[in-house]
Measured scan of single mutants.
Amino acid sequence: PDFTLHWNGITIHFKGIDEEQFRHLRELLDRGVSLEELEELAKELIK
């Protein structure tokens, strides 16, 4: 499924991740993950 997340004025689209992965990403963003960390995470998910 696809998810869209609005965070700090940025709209991020996640394609092909499951709800569990999306929930994990939201928790990280709510905790204050940096954009660099988010990019690293995205690379991991894409593999």
Rank of each mutant, 00 (worst) to 15 (best):
V33P: 05
D30Q: 13
E27F: 15
H13N: 09
I10P: 00
I10D: 02
V33L: 11
L45N: 03
N8C: 05
E19D: 10
I17W: 03
K15I: 12
H6A: 07
F22P: 00
G16T: 03
R23C: 05
S34G: 09
S34K: 06
H24T: 13
E40D: 10
H24Q: 13
G9C: 04
D2V: 15
D2F: 13
L38F: 09
F22Y: 10
E27Q: 14
R23W: 14
H6Q: 11
L41F: 12
F22G: 04
E39M: 15
L45P: 03
H6Y: 11
T11A: 07
R31P: 02
E36A: 12
L35S: 03
V33Y: 14
H13R: 10
L41I: 14
K47P: 11
E40S: 09
T11C: 10
F22W: 12
E44L: 12
K43H: 08
I17T: 03
G9E: 02
G32H: 05
D18A: 07
L41D: 01
K15H: 14
L35T: 04
I17Q: 01
E20Y: 15
F14L: 09
E19V: 12
T4V: 12
A42N: 02
E39V: 13
N8R: 08
L41W: 15
K43A: 12
N8G: 06
T4D: 02
D30E: 13
E39W: 15
E36T: 11
L38P: 00
K43G: 07
L5E: 00
N8L: 05
I12Q: 01
G9A: 01
E44S: 10
L38M: 05
L5A: 01
P1N: 14
G9T: 01
L29S: 03
E27P: 01
L45T: 05
T11D: 06
I46T: 07
W7K: 09
F3W: 08
T11Q: 08
Q21T: 14
L45M: 14
K43S: 07
T4R: 07
K47D: 12
E19C: 10
W7C: 03
P1C: 13
L25R: 00
D2A: 11
D30V: 13
R23E: 04
F14V: 05
S34Q: 04
K43F: 10
E37Y: 09
K43Q: 11
I12M: 08
T4N: 03
D2W: 14
G9W: 05
E19S: 13
A42K: 03
K15L: 09
N8Y: 04
R31I: 07
I10F: 06
E44H: 10
L38Q: 00
L38V: 14
K15A: 11
I46Y: 04
D30L: 15
E40G: 06
E19M: 10
G32A: 07
L35Y: 08
V33T: 11
D18P: 04
K43Y: 08
E39Q: 12
N8D: 04
L5S: 00
I12R: 01
L35Q: 04
I46V: 10
E40V: 09
V33F: 13
L41V: 11
E40Q: 09
P1R: 15
R23V: 07
W7I: 09
W7D: 01
E39D: 06
Q21P: 02
E37S: 07
H13W: 11
L35K: 04
F14G: 01
T11G: 01
F22Q: 02
R26Y: 08
H13S: 12
D18V: 04
G32M: 08
G32F: 09
D18N: 15
F3N: 02
R31G: 08
D18F: 05
L25G: 00
L5N: 00
A42S: 05
K47V: 14
L25M: 06
S34V: 04
G9H: 03
D30P: 02
V33E: 03
L5Q: 00
L35I: 12
A42C: 08
E36H: 12
R23A: 06
E39I: 14
L38Y: 01
L28N: 03
R31W: 08
L35A: 06
H24F: 15
H13Q: 12
G32Y: 06
E27D: 13
R23K: 11
E19R: 10
E37V: 10
R31D: 06
F3M: 04
H24C: 13
G16D: 09
R26D: 01
E40Y: 09
E19K: 10
E36D: 11
I12N: 00
L5K: 00
E39F: 14
T11F: 07
R31Y: 08
K47N: 14
E19A: 14
L45V: 07
E20K: 14
E27C: 15
S34P: 10
D18E: 06
E39H: 11
Q21A: 12
I17K: 02
E40T: 09
H24S: 08
E40C: 06
G9N: 05
E44W: 06
F22K: 02
E27M: 15
L38R: 00
L38C: 03
G16E: 07
R31A: 09
E20C: 12
E37A: 10
D30S: 14
